[in-house]
Computed example of a mutant assay.
Amino acid sequence: MPVFYLDIGIDMQVIILDTPEQVAEKSAQWVTEVIKQKPAAVLGLATGSTPISLYELLVEQYRHGDLSFADITTFNLDEYHNIAADNPQSYRSFMQKQLFDHVDIAPSRTYLPTCSSEQNPRLQGEAYEQKIKDKGGIDLQILGIGANGHIGFNEPTSSLSSRTRIKTLTKQTLTDNSRLFGQGEFQPTMAMTMGIATILEASYVLLMATGENKASAVKQMVTGPLNAMCPASALQLHQHAVILIDKAAASELTEQDYFLWADKEQQKVTDSHGLLTMC
């Protein structure tokens, strides 16, 4: 069965699946399809607990000889400000542990928006934007969503035209992420992040969300007004955005029946006109 049906020119796709495992499996199918159609694709990657199961499935496919990352380039959404790459809490360490160390990707092709205390955040952000442009732009951007609606570290009140820059994290984000830090361990309060405009320039966007704690943010993203207080609502502007969620994350959507029906109907168009075409 075809995985994609984005090229038929439809609105944001909301696909509701039964379990978090199914969200990961469907996401892995999409990433695999992109890589097989374009072996030198540029992928935008996310950290956090949600995409871990996706990365596990991609690693498994690589180990079975079904997937290669040899020509892939990656750009991560964000990185803590002034954190060493070898710090276990850095997103570089996260990506090495969850994906990079287990596949055949070249380290020189993996980028994160780093910034030390000695570096100018504005210049670092501009340099990151230029690197993305130099590589031809992001083909597929993977996203999670924060309980407050953030994507990357674009916290509420972020400009919808924002670019890679330094952001102060909200108290809610710090509280949500505090479980990842040990007692007495320093938790950064600032991070470098791709901007919302940067994310919207990706050819395709795939957002994963699971669990009841994301239900309110998902509702605001999909059916709420477009506004800076829910940065993820900017995805309403993207022609090729897919929202993969489990039933728990969809629990506050009053239009669930419509989304389930629309998914089946759109699949018929896919069957007639084929898969996503990567240039």
Rank of each mutant, 00 (worst) to 15 (best):
P2I: 02
F4Y: 06
I10W: 12
I10V: 15
A24E: 10
Q29W: 03
W30H: 12
V31N: 04
V31P: 00
T32S: 05
K38S: 09
T47Q: 00
T50Q: 09
P51A: 05
S53I: 07
V59W: 05
E60D: 09
L67K: 11
T73S: 12
N76K: 04
N82F: 07
P88K: 08
F94H: 02
L99P: 04
D101K: 08
D104Q: 09
I105L: 05
A106T: 02
R109F: 09
T110A: 11
Y111E: 14
L112Q: 05
L112G: 08
P113S: 12
E118I: 07
L123E: 10
G125T: 07
E126Q: 14
A127L: 14
E129R: 12
K135Q: 13
G136T: 02
G136H: 02
I138H: 06
Q141E: 15
Q141A: 06
L143P: 09
A147Q: 11
G152D: 05
G152Y: 04
T157I: 11
L160K: 12
R163P: 14
R163V: 14
I166M: 15
T170R: 08
Q172N: 11
T175I: 13
D176P: 13
R179P: 11
L180G: 03
G182P: 09
G182C: 02
Q187S: 04
P188M: 02
M192T: 01
T198I: 06
E201G: 00
E201K: 00
A202T: 00
A202K: 03
M208H: 01
A209K: 08
A215G: 03
V222G: 04
G224L: 04
H240T: 05
V242F: 06
I243H: 04
A250R: 06
Q256M: 06
Y258C: 03
K268W: 06
T270I: 09
T270V: 12
D271M: 00
L276T: 02
T277G: 07
C279W: 09
